[in-house]
Design a protein around this nucleic acid. Structure first.
Lengths: 192, 192
DNA sequence: TCGAAAGTGTGATTCAAGTCACACATTCTT
DNA sequence: AAGAATGTGTGACTTGAATCACACTTTCGA
């Protein structure tokens, strides 16, 4: 749990005592490759903080095609926030892609923690702020960029992901076909 | 300012006294059609709450093509949050499309307000939460939807915008060409 | 350790949407 | 009230990316 504390203290310091209390809101969970953390249609009880591992969050259209909404690595928060905050059934799936360990926080715990400790409310707000910004950049990139630009931008931003997950998922994240993505850096003038 | 109070009280009640204090953080501003609230390259000093009017927030690529990141109507918050939170020069433009009145809140004021009043921190977090969810839905729609689906979804979600702004901006928001959008509901099987 | 499954590159073909071009309608502006 | 600017529909043409198809490679699981 030390890593979680460090993560929180990137935003706001907490005393030993405070952290002891914060800890009680989380529960630990180990997840193996291919295991679902969340499935289509489930109620979303928790959000997850990833201590270790890689996940992808995607949803399926009627034809069963996958679209990746988010990757998540160590130190990231992850859930279907639409469903989590709105307390409606999820339409997303979250799957483990690499042996993982996560801490779970229910919505109730989250809100309790936020209301009892101003600094945790602040922490969550700052995290949300950063996420909001990142999403806005992604929207810009989806709207304007050619597949090539999108890929380059993504590769620059998240080199760790590019090297660790199969290309086809990157393609799904970028909104291009696997083949097109492949042609981008083989035929194309792109350094891996 | 009564409307602002009402807006805040949708999330959390505030006493007369508290609201008097909150008010001091905002400054009022009138904006006319075509006027820029924010321009490419500016430092972003404020975020804005719209008491009245319509805005569009867009950015321009190297070729000068416009991409709409967000529309904003009455009761919405608006800024280039990337630049605002990160305190870097904006790469967005915000233009008034209909006679408006806004309240301005600087980053400093915002953070001061949030740190002094837990309930305002909560308020901002809740707003951010909603915005985050909405963006996530938009990302899904951009990734998966055909132009037609995207348009239908948008029209359903924001009927007020569809009826009030020129189609070409809707097209820019959806990431399709003006012509394609036009063909969607003339040739196409789509009710206006 | 061997067969199956998953990941990847590349060609051929198709097609949806972008681009260009123009006519007409609507609304600003002075 | 007239002319300019803006908004909108529609045709013809072009094109970039999706799709389909297949070979080869790597990884995984029993």
């Amino acid at each position: 749990m030390d890593k979680l504390r460090k993560h929180i203290e990137e935003i706001t310091p907490v005393s030993d005592q405070e952290f002891e209390y914060i800890k009680t809101f989380f529960s630990e969970k180990k997840v193996r490759k291919h295991q679902y953390l969340l499935q289509d249609g489930d109620m979303v009880t928790c959000e997850y903080w990833i201590a270790k591992g890689i996940f992808r969050a995607f949803y399926l259209d009627k034809e069963g095609k996958e679209y990746i909404v988010q990757f998540a690595l160590e130190n990231w928060w992850l859930s279907d926030y639409n469903a989590f905050f709105g307390q409606v059934p999820s339409n997303m799936n979250i799957v483990c892609m690499e042996e993982a360990e996560v801490y779970c926080l229910t919505l109730l715990s989250r809100e309790k923690l936020a209301s009892e400790m101003h600094k945790m409310e602040h922490f969550f707000r700052m995290k949300l702020t950063k996420g909001y910004s990142a999403q806005q950049r992604r929207i810009c990139s989806l709207l304007s960029g050619s597949p090539k630009q999108r890929y380059e931008e993504f590769a620059k931003m998240y080199p760790g992901i590019v090297s660790k997950v199969p290309k086809k998922y990157i393609a799904e994240y970028l909104g291009v076909s696997r083949e097109t993505l492949s042609r981008l850096y083989s035929g194309g003038n792109l350094q891996t």
